[in-house]
Amino acid sequence: MFSPLILVQILWTSLATTSCFVLFALAFALVLKVNRVFNFAQAAIMTVAFYAAFTAVARGGAPGWAGLLAALAGAAFMAVALQVLGFRALQRRRASSMFVFIFTLIVSELISYVAMLLFGTWPATIFPSLFWPVTMVGGIAVSQWDMLALGATAVALIATFAFLHLSRIGQAMTAVADNPDLAAFYGIDRNRAQLAAMVLAGLINGLAMFLYGTRAQVQPTSAIELLLFAIAATIIGGIGNLGGAVVTAVVLGLVQNASVLFIPSEWQGFLLYFFLFLAIVLFPRGVHLPVRKRPFRTVAAAARRPEEPAGG
């Protein structure tokens, strides 16, 4: 009933639309992994990023690249403030995880109310028009935004993973995520690693929110709903597994965007809650961060009886 061309078109557009969501999920999963916080205040970071870009471009008439810089700066600033004024203080006080939860939630709500006060509740966009020039590639409509978003997302993903694996501070972040006590033993500053994770996640959010805001309308409350997608992807993808979160986000995004084919559009937003529900019911085993396997394999192999089949 659909021609293959239309299917390819939908897939392509869905993939492009999904790119921002992938970055939101990456940022959420990163903070969860390194800082061990379900950071609902990520919505606050996203809101600040969007309205920073909005103020610079739509209100101030600055060019697009300045808007991106404003989004990055706003997001990074918010991330640092959260970590230094919020999480660090709560950590020092040994606040319960419930307390930290409430804190992140309340911060994201506070920021959305502040945004409502300053910018009103109406949907806004960074550029006056959401339409981007389209070129036809083999019968598929490819907009400049698609290319921009996919390109930027790919670069951001590669840069993030390279940073985590190659840079000293990135490796420190992974070490802290794996075992905070052991990391402290080897002289890795947990505070610095967590701050770095927040800043990195902030920058990813800034980029993603800028991309999102050049293509879709944003309200002060949008970020909380966008964040739910990231949470669902992180849970299904396996907590502590950044790659898993990214891949799951791609799949979920494709399914959600392509769902126009199967279900009425007003229920499309509902799919997200369905995903979340599925994630909780079917993929609940994520709370305990998985143990890194490699370093211990040898120990285990040495201890195992030779005749014992693997997996016991």
Partner: peptide, 24 residues
């Protein structure tokens, strides 16, 4: 479904329920 596993999931589930049911 959420309490069976851990308290964290109730929070996430409750956010989904809060937004999802109002949406419905």
């Amino acid at each position: 479904p959420s309490v069976r596993i851990s308290g964290d999931y109730l929070l996430i589930g409750s956010i989904g329920v809060q937004l999802g049911i109002l949406e419905a």
